[in-house]
Simulated assay, not measured.
Amino acid sequence: MSKKDKKQDIEQEKVETSQTETVEVDKQQAENQSVEEKLKDQVQQEKDKFLRLFAEFENYKKRTSRERIELFSTASEDVMKTLLPVLDDFERALSHIEEDKEAEELRKGVLLIYQKLINTLEQKGLKAIKIEKGDAFNADNHEAITQIPAPSEDLKGKIIDVIEKGYKLGDKVIRFPKVVIGQ
């Protein structure tokens, strides 16, 4: 072999070695990219899991906060319900005392206690439901005790008398007004 042939063979081997190394480097880069993509996918999945878990936790906090607020606002409902008959008794007593002219001092004392009770209950969220004679009867908002013949045509199907006031605690009705309606 001549020097020229040897040189060409060496050059040929270098080219083949270089090509082999290039192919191996390409394979390794492809493997690295594949591993990198897998890791990116795993990171993305973990981020999604984290975000979902975080969102669920935020929803849990909001829900428990709402439930706690609702519990506090209606916790006194039982107490209010038991005090409503006392309130009714005060109103009856005041209406009877007003008829007696000699009991002016008694009326003032009972009225003072009644106003104090009303103010205290209103501070705790109790509100009387406004209803008057002649209002239209609505079965969703009123409790009909009885029906009587209407004294006039325009009072048919309307409230003739309010037997017992209705009350709300916040936005919740704790006692519907009891009414008599015209037939």
Rank of each mutant, 00 (worst) to 15 (best):
V110T: 04
F50A: 11
R52W: 07
L87Q: 07
K133V: 15
L94C: 03
T64E: 03
I145Y: 03
G109A: 13
K108F: 10
I131K: 06
N138Q: 12
I145E: 07
E132A: 15
Q147Y: 00
P151C: 04
F50C: 00
A55Q: 14
A128D: 13
E67Q: 12
F90R: 01
R63E: 12
P85E: 12
Y60N: 05
I145H: 10
E102K: 14
T146S: 15
M80R: 00
V86H: 05
P85R: 08
F137H: 08
I131R: 08
A103W: 01
I148A: 10
A75Q: 11
F50K: 08
A136V: 15
Q123S: 11
G125S: 10
V79Y: 07
K108L: 12
A150R: 02
L71A: 13
N119F: 00
G125M: 10
L111T: 11
E143L: 09
K124C: 03
A55N: 15
E70N: 15
R92G: 08
L112G: 11
L111G: 14
D100A: 05
K127Q: 13
G109R: 07
E70K: 11
R107F: 00
M80I: 13
S65E: 11
P149Q: 08
L53F: 05
D100N: 07
Q123F: 00
Y114K: 03
T64D: 03
V86W: 00
E153L: 09
A55E: 15
G134H: 02
I97E: 06
H142G: 08
L121V: 02
K101N: 00
F50H: 02
S76D: 07
E67V: 06
N59K: 08
V86Y: 05
Q147E: 04
P151N: 11
S73M: 13
A144W: 00
D78P: 10
I148C: 08
A144C: 11
E104R: 13
K127N: 14
D88G: 08
E122R: 13
T74G: 01
R92A: 01
A128N: 09
E105N: 12
E153F: 05
K49M: 01
K127H: 14
T146C: 09
L112S: 15
D135P: 08
E58W: 01
V110Q: 02
K101D: 01
